[in-house]
């Protein structure tokens, strides 16, 4: 067994000790994980964005158009002190403004319009029989939207619609719970497989 597998196995067991209760071994592993994860993200972002997109073209190829992004980036460091934190508003404004501007067409077209049009299906098929599933989708979308409509009190027809919407939401939460269970179990199975096969050699 290689050294890496031994370390990985011991750290896996250290995290699993949390199932009994919080303890120093778990806490040590937890802090190590957070530290390593921050260091990892820093390295990857530094290499891909700072070196490849900023420093190499700016200082290596003399692309002076990058001077302004560099200054804006450095203004982010204003956040280190309460007195200077106001200067980080400008680079933040670039991020927030660009994100908002790009989001408007993305939300309007592929999100809202396409999803609405996807719900509008013929309610009678070519064979003349009613399309019950299509009807369920239309009723489900409208009633769930009614449930989230808070500008009027949920009474009368809106109350009925929002109640039906609750049932659709419950079906969605149920299916999602089912898939969440699958997902979480898969994650544990993956770790159990590592422990049983690679670390303890109990299975093939």
């Amino acid at each position: 067994m290689d050294f890496g597998t031994i370390i990985a196995g011991l750290l896996t067991l250290a995290i699993l000790t949390f199932l009994y209760r919080d303890n120093p071994i778990y806490k040590l592993a937890e802090y190590l994980l957070v530290g390593v994860a921050v260091g990892y993200a820093l390295v990857i972002a530094w290499k891909s964005a700072m070196v490849d997109l900023l420093f190499t073209p700016l200082f290596g190829q003399g692309d002076w158009s990058l001077l302004l992004p560099l200054i804006l980036g450095l203004m982010m460091f204003g956040r280190f002190h309460a007195r200077t934190s106001f200067i980080s508003r400008v680079p933040l404004a670039v991020l927030i403004g660009s994100g908002a501007g790009a989001a408007v067409p993305a939300m309007l077209g592929p999100r809202i319009l396409t999803q609405v049009s996807g719900s509008v299906t013929p309610l009678v098929g070519t064979d003349g029989l009613p399309n019950w599933s299509g009807l369920i989708v239309i009723v489900g979308v409208l009633s769930t939207l009614a449930y989230f409509f808070f500008s009027r009190e949920h009474r009368g027809s809106l109350g009925v619609a929002s109640k039906v919407g609750t049932w659709f939401l419950m079906i969605f939460f149920g299916t999602t719970f089912g898939y969440t269970v699958m997902s979480r179990m898969s994650t544990f199975i993956g770790r159990a497989e590592f422990l049983l096969t690679d670390f303890l050699h109990l299975t093939r």
């Binding site: 999803q115 996807g118 969605f172 299916t175 898939y179 969440t180 699958m182 997902s183 898969s186």
Partner: peptide, 26 residues
């Protein structure tokens, strides 16, 4: 995708925006 995300993407599969989707260990 991971299984937990499957139901979140069902509307995109249904509308044809997502060509295909496979989820989870299963």
């Amino acid at each position: 995708v991971t299984a937990v995300m499957v139901t979140s993407y069902d509307p995109y599969v249904s509308s044809g925006q997502l060509r295909a989707m496979v989820g989870g260990l299963r």
